Computed example of a mutant assay.
Amino acid sequence: MQIKISNHAVEWFKDEMFLTTGDTVRFFVRYGGSSPLHEGFSLGMNKEEPMDPGVEYQKDGITFFIEERDLWYFKDHDLVVDVDENKDGPVYSYEKE
């Protein structure tokens, strides 16, 4: 499994979360909402330090990661992150590996 983040999304995260070199952003599974992968669950993100990263992606000195305990959510899929211009926020999609 991989994390794929567009350059535009990296810039959005840097601007909106005031990220600088060395910062880390976690994508995590949360109860509630829905997704194409699991009804009743959705994806969240937060600026925090990794404890047991299962997958990482680095760009412009920022590390984006998913903890090992959350990898079940993505079974056989890559996480693709971009920006929705209309909502001015991240949008998540999933590609079959």
Rank of each mutant, 00 (worst) to 15 (best):
I62D: 03
K59F: 06
V81F: 03
M51L: 14
F18Y: 14
P50R: 05
T20P: 00
V25L: 07
F27N: 06
D15M: 09
T21P: 00
Y31K: 15
T21I: 14
V55M: 09
V80E: 09
Q2N: 14
W72K: 01
H77S: 01
E11W: 08
G89Y: 08
Y57V: 04
G61D: 02
V29Q: 09
V81W: 02
S42P: 02
G44Y: 04
K59L: 05
Y57S: 08
W72N: 00
G89C: 06
D60A: 13
T20A: 10
S6Q: 07
G32Q: 12
L43H: 04
T21N: 14
I3M: 08
E68C: 00
K96N: 05
T63G: 02
H77A: 00
M17T: 02
D88R: 15
K96F: 06
A9V: 03
E97W: 09
E95R: 15
S35I: 09
K59M: 11
D88L: 14
M45R: 10
F13Q: 02
F74H: 03
K47P: 04
N86M: 13
G54E: 03
N7K: 13
K47E: 03
S35W: 08
M1H: 04
D88H: 15
D84L: 09
G61C: 02
T63E: 02
V29P: 08
V81M: 02
I66A: 04
M17E: 11
K87M: 13
Y57T: 06
R30Y: 13
V91H: 09
G22D: 07
I5P: 00
G32F: 12
V83M: 10
A9M: 04
H38L: 06
V83S: 10
Y94G: 05
L19P: 11
M1A: 06
F28H: 14
G54D: 02
L79S: 01
L19H: 09
V55H: 06
D78H: 12
G44W: 05
E49G: 04
P53F: 05
F41C: 09
F74E: 02
E95H: 12
E97P: 00
D78R: 01
E16V: 14
L71M: 13
I66N: 05
E49S: 13
G22N: 10
I62R: 09
N46G: 03
E16N: 15
T21H: 13
D23N: 15
M1I: 03
T21Y: 12
K47R: 13
V83R: 09
K4L: 14
Y31C: 03
Y31T: 15
I5G: 00
G44S: 10
K75L: 10
E39R: 11
N46F: 05
L37S: 10
D76F: 04
Q58V: 15
F27Y: 14
I3T: 04
G61L: 02
T24F: 06
G54K: 07
K4T: 12
P53N: 04
A9T: 04
I5H: 01
S93C: 10
V10M: 05
E49Q: 13
P36S: 13
D23P: 05
V55S: 06
G61R: 05
R26F: 03
N86I: 11
E56M: 12
W12C: 01
S6H: 09
I62H: 10
T24N: 14
E56T: 15
G54Y: 05
F41T: 03
H77E: 01
E16L: 06
K75M: 07
K96T: 03
E85P: 10
N86P: 04
E49H: 08
S42W: 05
L43R: 07
D88N: 15
I62S: 05
F13V: 01
